[in-house]
Design a protein around this nucleic acid. Structure first.
Length: 280
DNA sequence: CAACTTATTCCATCTGCCTC
DNA sequence: GAGGCAGATGGAATAAGTTG
């Protein structure tokens, strides 16, 4: 498309423009917008004012480039589009994920696929293309894949926020989880029982975080239970979320896999299921 | 020591230069 | 002209250095 003579497209406002407007360096702008110390209150106010005037906010791609972090989580669901809205758990599942991601200024990349094989292929393609910094793996046929994956990421203390003891499916999942933990080797896992409610999940998770040997990752029977707020919302001091953590949740009756922090060493793509897309 | 600047780094893509 | 290579580019984060 040709441009008319003398009408250049407007140039994108960058951190450099904000720095120039505020009369500081790019570094000071970066420190300010990342809420890091080293910039006075007055200078921060000046930088925020300059950014407002210019309508600037951090460029996500550039941020990903420098920090090796992608603030997008991928979710591929093997479900026909027309039935998705008819399944209450699906909508609750997605909305639960969103409620957590929004608090962390993260985005959800959602795609509907035909089957588990395609789901895994899509996730791996996203991952290879660095389109996502974390994955939510749904529809795995057997739950210990997720635990294996967490172990592959480097997690050695994995907790499971489970349902009420005595229920059949709770017992089965607990046994599967413990078997996978044993197989993974030294480190160990713990299961905390809840009544499946978000409040109970939050309480249990908070208790895990407060413990001396707090887990580096957690799994749960439902996304809202596993992730429920306490992992993502800043907990009361001095408890802080583990700097590197993975969340996993499962919405009945399916199992859900792992998400990961992009700052972790990137493991080689590994077979989760048999599929056409595996590297040798 | 707080407040700030500078230099380096990230990595896919593009451009320019050189050789065959 | 084709192919290969080196260097520049984009925007932001951050470690290290500087200033008062």
């Amino acid at each position: 498309m040709g441009s008319e003579a003398g009408t250049e497209p407007p140039r994108r406002v960058t951190i450099r423009d904000v720095a120039a407007r505020a009369g500081v360096s790019k570094g000071a702008v970066s420190l300010t917008f990342n809420d890091r110390p080293g910039v006075s209150r007055a200078t921060r106010d000046r930088i925020f004012a300059a950014a407002r005037e210019l309508g600037w906010s951090p460029h996500l791609s550039a941020r990903s480039l420098s920090s090796s972090r992608v603030d997008t989580v991928g979710l591929a669901i093997a479900r026909p589009a027309r039935t998705l809205g008819l399944e209450p758990w699906s909508m609750e599942f997605v909305s639960g994920i969103e409620s957590v991601l929004v608090e962390r200024s993260c985005s959800l990349l959602l795609r509907l696929v035909r089957d588990v094989r395609e789901e895994i292929a899509v996730q791996e393609a996203w991952w290879r293309g660095r389109q996502i910094g974390g994955s939510i793996l749904a529809d795995l046929r057997d739950g210990d894949h997720a635990v294996r994956y967490l172990v592959a990421l480097g997690h050695r203390r994995i907790a499971r926020v489970g349902g009420a003891p005595g229920l059949g499916h709770t017992t089965i999942r607990k046994a599967a989880f413990e078997a996978a933990i044993r197989e993974a080797g030294p480190g160990g896992g713990r299961t905390v029982a809840t009544d499946f409610s978000g409040e109970e999940g939050a309480r249990a998770t908070r208790a895990l975080l407060a413990s001396a040997d707090r887990p580096t990752s957690a799994t749960g029977p439902r996304w809202r239970t596993a992730s429920s707020r306490s992992w993502t919302r800043r907990p009361p001091a001095p408890i802080r979320p583990p700097p590197r953590r993975s969340l996993r949740g499962a919405a009945r009756p399916r199992r859900v896999g792992a998400s990961r922090d992009a700052r972790w060493p990137r493991p080689e793509p590994r077979p989760v299921n048999d599929g056409p897309n595996h590297d040798p």
